[in-house]
Design a protein around this nucleic acid. Structure first.
Lengths: 230, 230
DNA sequence: CGCCCGCTTGATCGTCATCAAGGGCGGTGG
DNA sequence: CCACCGCCCTTGATGACGATCAAGCGGGCG
């Protein structure tokens, strides 16, 4: 937990992999390692964002809350991903709250030090830009799905995207592990647990997929692609 | 339309205001000035993005299209704003198509030259980062509204945001000009023209607002704020 | 063993989209 | 100046999709 060990952990992040040790050290003095337990809240919606997070391992849920107390999960972040750079950079309040789904280790990197490093390192700025553009594109895609796809199309689309991602990683089997409980997966797709359940079980009865606990196996990719509305 | 005049136009963009003339010139050689007429399409959804746009004046509609041919307007971009940097930077296909709503003048800045300038100028990179983070935050806000607000709340929320923006610009009157036709404003809020019409006329009948053509006047701000779900 | 949690399944309800028709206003041309 | 046309908008009737309410099941864990 000393500055040296933190620096070496930072150095393993894609964004900081090439940094000089001096800058890693500067950064590490403004970085907190966090060991968070299931259920814990990292921050609430509306609080000022003064840094961003990098997930070493574990699983974090990011979710909106409405005035009526209902929630909509924006993302479930796993090891190797970061979140919150945008809110930090434009010093906005958090648009969502963050809750730990299972025992997690994170880095919390404060804004001031990070901004310095970004300004001094075109390469870091570059990496940050690409990561942020990817996020923007992703948000547009989500938005499109939410606005003009039916509930079934969203589920099918989700499954196909997961398969596609795995295929790009070279994994060949047609098996998908849901990111968390069915209820949370449903919320990710802006569905109630009930509708999500009904949809995957119709697909199951149609022999298009087979569902067992949190594992979905695609049996008939062709048929799945037909019902996706693309 | 020569390189020199283009350079001076580029120089008026916030992002390039401080650039050396040499770099402005480099950029200008990869910039096209576009005079577009109403109805014209700048690009279609799915085409590769190889540059981004800056609107000098006029009005551009950005919209998704679904498999069923229905559309959802993402944004209506007016003079002084830019769009497409993210798609360009991550060399993604356009997630929306762009159509000109009224006679417009734009700049189209190609990716290669822009990337060079960004790499060479920390200040430009910095400005780009802030603009992109704002976009991300904005997208999160839109997403929240779409996912957990009712149609009425979205309309009221929209009106309140417009009022708030004007107040920050020092404008004091409670008058809002819709960005385009009522149908297009509706689509911006993910509503049908019919629902949008019904909602603003209930608000009108309640004497909360008064509607005349594309002008909405807020009569009772208090009451409006109550019905926004915040 | 019993409880709680995650999930399923059925019945009902509400919101908003869709379908359909008509009105008003501006623009154009006689 | 008036008549006509087209577009934008309004208003009503109906319908569908998905949320909500309610009940029950199964499995893991204390």
């Amino acid at each position: 937990m000393d500055a040296f060990s933190t620096a070496s952990v930072l150095n393993r992040m894609p964004m900081f992999r090439h940094l000089e040790s001096e800058q890693l050290y500067l950064l590490s003095r403004h970085t907190r390692e966090i060991n968070a337990t299931k259920g814990q809240r990292l921050f609430n919606k509306g609080e000022q964002a003064e840094g961003f997070y990098y997930v070493l391992d574990g699983k974090i849920k990011l979710a909106f809350v409405s005035s009526r107390g209902t929630e909509k999960i924006v993302d479930i972040v796993a090891g190797g991903e970061n979140f919150g750079e945008s809110m930090m950079l434009s010093s906005q309040p958090w648009p969502y709250y963050a809750q730990v789904l299972l025992q997690s280790r994170l880095l919390y990197i404060k804004g001031e030090a990070f901004t310095q490093v970004v300004h001094g390192n075109p390469r870091v700025a570059q990496l940050l830009l690409t990561s942020m553009s990817r996020r923007v594109c992703h948000l547009f895609a989500d938005m499109e799905a939410l606005c003009l796809q039916s509930s079934r199309e969203r589920v099918v689309g989700y499954l196909l995207r997961e398969i596609e991602q795995q295929r790009q990683r070279g994994e060949t089997d047609l098996t998908i592990e849901l990111p968390d409980t069915k209820a949370n997966t449903a919320s990710l797709l802006n569905l109630t647990p009930e509708t999500f359940s009904r949809i995957i079980h119709t697909l199951d009865r149609e022999k298009t997929i087979s569902v067992s606990r949190r594992t979905v196996t695609v049996l008939d990719l062709e048929r799945l692609q037909e019902g996706c509305g693309c």
